[in-house]
Nucleic acid binder design. Structure first.
Lengths: 229, 229
DNA sequence: CGATGACCTGATGTCGACATTACTACAACG
DNA sequence: CGTTGTAGTAATGTCGACATCAGGTCATCG
């Protein structure tokens, strides 16, 4: 319905040009602040403090915090304030299993009905990771690549479900690079390239296997007490 | 972490007793109003009208509408108001595929680590459907049964993801019973009983097959032009 | 007569202030 | 000395009013 059909007369060069509200702007700021380390997991996010710092009223801040709650980045308790999410080992397991279910569907959708433009976008998302030296930037691009995968799936609700996990995965990856950056910077570009190649080959089984292995590499760093690397 | 471990000293008889906000109350009211037919798909939900009807301010109404938006029940546009979601055939396809991915994971989780109490709750949820004559009530119990399945999975984020679909599935089932109630009232109790039996048998493959068939029965009513009933 | 522009209406977005609630520390009591 | 009741405090929840924006209507111009 809403998806732009390639080949029609509408100019795909112009973006929908939809105006965003102030709440989204505030949500972006707070999100980046959390990812930047200004608010570590468990820290309290006071509405008055945030509204004063950004020079906006508490209304947009409230809505922004609810947006971040939907993304799983913070937890809101009634009359008890908002705190940055702390991921327990059980949470990481939940994240991994649900992400696996979503990504499996995404891979199938991409292989079934992805356009050449979508695959080109995946290529680009994988290539920009090649010459990155900062671990934080690499995490950002890692998430961006998987965003591109879900976008290429052409499945709005699947992308929405991923939106409910991506920030928590981002948080998890941040703790991961704190444990060990070894090999992360060097391996990620190669792995993502292999992922795109598997998608291009349209071989569902091998693609699913590669994506599963890719997820496992991330989890193994934390929980892998018996099998280091 | 938060899950009540059976056999510990904490009395499972008492509920967590946490108070809800006014926004959630308003959200429940609007949700029920939509399911009751007061606001058909495409209808506009005006904040002033709702706040006046419920004798609350616009603040809680705003938050409630955002909650309903997260559930996919309404769509909010910037400065353009909120409207009840209308499900296109493409939306129904998205709903079905994503629900399948989530339910597959739920079935696996239930078979792996569901307690006897969880299975008993599933039995109960399936049994209460036996003597229902109203189609709307049947839809409600249908959703409630699948809620129980996701609850038995013991996977918070999976249940959250299902929360983003359940209202849309509810909406879809309402349009389904408008097309044909034939056999729906009689078949649902039996199918759900079979679903529980498959879960109890701990046979993953057969359970997945039964759940897939169950979902297919619902979709076939709308899209099945070649195979009526 | 058709197209274009400004105005008007109705809605949502935002703001500041008040009411309500939960946490904490302290005092009184058993 | 441990427990319970109570006030204080600081945060969130809620409210009403103002500012801003999108869509529709009508007058004007070509």
């Amino acid at each position: 319905m809403e998806e732009g059909q390639p080949g029609m007369s509408d100019q795909v060069k112009v973006s929908p040009a939809r105006r965003r509200g102030l709440s989204d702007e505030v949500a972006d700021r707070i999100r980046e602040a959390i990812f930047g380390g200004a608010y570590p997991p468990g820290a309290q996010l006071r509405e008055v403090e945030l509204s004063a710092a950004m020079e906006v009223s508490r209304g947009p801040v409230r809505e922004a915090l609810r947006v971040l709650e939907r993304e799983g980045l913070v937890r809101c308790a009634w009359h008890r304030g908002t705190t940055v999410t702390t991921l327990s080992p059980g949470d990481v397991a939940e994240l991994d299993s649900l992400r696996g279910a979503l990504e499996d569907l995404a891979v199938r959708q991409v292989i079934m009905r992805a356009s050449d433009e979508d695959l080109a976008a995946l290529d680009k998302a994988a290539e920009v990771m090649a010459h990155v030296t900062d671990a934080h930037d690499m995490v950002r691009l890692d998430i961006a690549f998987h965003d591109a995968v879900f976008a290429a799936a052409g499945h709005q609700r699947l992308a929405d479900a991923w939106d409910g996990l991506r920030c928590q995965v981002h948080l998890f990856l941040l703790t991961r690079i704190n444990r060990s950056v070894e090999g992360y910077l060097g391996r990620m570009p190669r792995e993502h390239r292999d992922l795109v190649a598997a998608l291009r080959s349209r071989d569902i089984d091998s693609a699913l296997r590669l994506f599963a292995a890719h997820r496992r590499h991330a989890v193994d760093v934390l929980g892998g007490s018996s099998k280091p690397n």
